[in-house]
Design a protein around this nucleic acid. Structure first.
Lengths: 223, 223
DNA sequence: TAAACGAATATTGTATACAATCTACAAATC
DNA sequence: GATTTGTAGATTGTATACAATATTCGTTTA
């Protein structure tokens, strides 16, 4: 959508985007080691821009780099995921309270459309992106760019775990309803109720995901 | 204090630490361009580890990198500084409310000592570090490592502007009193009052700094 | 047999060399 | 004179080559 159309993007940037996508889509699951030489030859580049891409992804929380030992796709512990949801809770209720009075009719139309897109049967692979854009459109009028960037990072890191859960549980249908409810209350300008709904929305998503992860955890550690 | 004593630290890491210090201490003020070749020869290394250090510092918010144009020490706008203080306000009141019931006598002793150290007449160059450690000791029992890391980043970015103001205004004396008051209320376990004090502490620091910056701004833009 | 050692291999970290891009300034054009 | 164009120099981006560190696995030894 944005991003300069006619800019000579550097190899490092392109590689960072590519790897980020692979991680977000689950092609590279948490824990996967990343061999520089191997990946560099696969991409037809040298290791230098690849290393810079990895450093970028490390800063974004997707990759862990250990000196002389290499990079791996960063795993998140259940405790860390819980903490990320708590951060969301505090930051998003704050930023929504700022944004709510400034939402325009145009914003509401965009939000309607995003919900419709999420309804499409083939939207699953874009689930994370659509979900974030819904929240982003809602928060952007708050005019807190640093906070918004932080929130995107948090969402991305959560989403690569949420993806597993959303694709096979009833969580997806629930997310629709909660987004619709939230949007309706924002339209009415009902601040208190909207904030309360958002809080419950985040909390329920967290509970559902963490239950799921705990279940998988006991499964995989029991074999 | 922490940090592995016997680890072979990589050049990139050492350079990142060095540059971070120079930026935090004001040796490299905001806007300073960083010429890779020049700095690399000064440090006696090649540009490769220097570039990785710069990427790290960019992620931490201290440096801005523009493709094919180079790195500069990142300036913060007044709006961004205000936003950072607002983030502090929300995150720190939350994390203190978690930490407060878990503060031990040992923690209180450490906090007493940190205030004493700040009193020392030669503590000015370490002001930022001491100020952060006070808050860190207070928040660590909350056991929210990701939030704490975020807060350190925010503090560091604020402090390199605050340094100017603290060194020449009466803000330093006020910070002492506020830290002492805050500590006293934490000792008594007076949650509501402690949170209120913390909120006012952050807000007043913000107001004082921003006034100062606005004054300098009108001065420098008027010539 | 199991633990400890060590050489061979694999992998990452960094220096050097070259390619791509930007910047500054002078000449050309209107 | 103002704007554009073009070229030389400066600066960054990337490939290649080598150095330093880690890992593997066979061998030795208790």
């Amino acid at each position: 959508m944005d991003g300069p159309v006619l800019s000579k993007r550097t190899m490092a940037e392109q590689v960072a985007d590519l790897l980020r996508q692979r991680i977000l889509l689950g092609v590279l699951p948490a824990g996967t080691p990343i061999r520089q030489e191997h990946l560099a030859t696969e991409l037809g580049i040298s290791r230098i821009p690849l290393r810079e891409a990895l450093k970028q992804l490390e800063a974004e929380g997707f990759v862990t780099i250990a000196s002389h030992k290499g990079a791996t796709v960063a795993p998140l512990s259940v405790a860390e995921i819980e903490e990320l949801f708590q951060l969301r809770l505090h930051l998003e209720t704050w930023i929504l309270s700022l944004a709510l009075p400034r939402l325009t009719e145009g914003d509401f139309a965009t939000l309607d459309q995003l919900i419709a897109e999420q309804r499409a049967p083939d939207s699953l692979p874009r689930w994370g992106e659509l979900n974030w854009r819904f929240h982003e459109v809602m928060y952007r009028p708050a005019d807190r760019p640093l906070t918004l960037k932080m929130l995107k990072r948090i969402h991305d890191n959560i989403d690569r775990y949420l993806r597993l859960e959303v694709s096979l549980s009833a969580g997806r249908a629930r997310a629709f309803r909660e987004h619709e409810d939230l949007l309706a209350h924002c339209r009415k300008g009902d601040v208190a109720e909207a904030l309360d709904l958002l809080e419950r929305h985040i909390q329920q998503t967290a509970d559902s995901l963490i239950d799921h992860l705990r279940a998988r955890e006991t499964l995989t550690t029991a074999d």
